[in-house]
Computed example of a mutant assay.
Amino acid sequence: MRQNFAVIIPMANEEKDFQPFVNALIEVLNQLECGLVYFIVDKASKDRTLQLCQQTSSTDARFVTVWAPETRNVVEAYICGYQVAAKAKHDFIIEMDAGLSHDPNAIPRFLSLLLKDYDCVFGSRFITGGAIIDSNWERTFLSRVGTSLSNLLLGTKMHDMTSGFQGFSLEIVKKFLAYNLLSEAHFYQTELRYLLRKTRFVEVPIQYRAPSPRVSGKAILNSIYVLLHYVGKRVAFKAPSIK
């Protein structure tokens, strides 16, 4: 399955789980015999994550370390990764979290669906086969309530509106890179799903692992602001024409 695809991963304070995560990624890349991984590292990382990423990149050309000190939050780190991957003209770009929160073994499933002319593939923890494992109840509650509220107010019809494991065609990435996203934190995935609700999309089951840090009050306020901004609006990206 030789395809020009990339995986973008913001990396901050990942020293503890770095090697097991990279080993899992290497197994997947070996299986697919293709693909590049972009590590996006910024000043939020205070441990040896940057050095570990750079060491990996120096020994394996399939890993590219992007030092992005200008990014101010995780959303800007994601966007930086998409910009780099889009500039390199990868046909498909997959976004995931580090620290084994997302299973790299799911990457081939995302890629296979993108190859079937889906514009967007969204990971879902709330469909058959999906699950949240070892996460605190507050984050699980926020994810479920956020999904229900977003579907109700925004008119979306997805099972999971907050998952950060997702893949897109290059054409779709170019569309949202040209748009001024309002999210600065956790609502970013929801904003994207809302904007992409009229594309050819599919949800796939994923298992989310590892406890997540508490969501800050600032992030919750930003989520409410962005949600209310889109209520009653009809902003949407259309699916590109199939060639």
Rank of each mutant, 00 (worst) to 15 (best):
A185K: 10
K198Q: 10
L195P: 07
S216C: 09
V215R: 04
R193T: 02
S212K: 05
L192V: 03
T190Q: 04
L192K: 07
A210C: 12
V215H: 09
V202Q: 14
N180W: 05
Q189R: 09
K198Y: 03
A210Y: 03
Q207A: 14
R209W: 09
P211S: 11
V202W: 10
F201M: 07
P211L: 06
R214D: 13
Y194E: 03
P211M: 12
L181N: 06
G217S: 09
Q189P: 01
H186W: 05
L181A: 07
E191I: 02
T190W: 04
P213V: 12
R193G: 07
L196F: 12
A210P: 02
P205D: 13
I206Y: 03
T190N: 05
N180M: 04
P205I: 01
V215T: 15
Y188G: 03
Q207S: 14
A210M: 13
L181P: 03
Y208P: 03
H186E: 10
E203L: 14
S216Q: 11
I206W: 02
L182P: 02
I206H: 02
P213G: 13
V202E: 15
N180K: 10
K198E: 11
V215Y: 06
H186K: 03
K198R: 13
N180L: 00
V204P: 00
Q189I: 07
L192P: 02
R197D: 06
S212R: 01
S212Q: 13
S216M: 08
F201P: 00
T199K: 02
R193A: 06
Y208G: 10
Y208E: 03
A185N: 08
Q189H: 14
L196V: 04
S216D: 08
S212E: 11
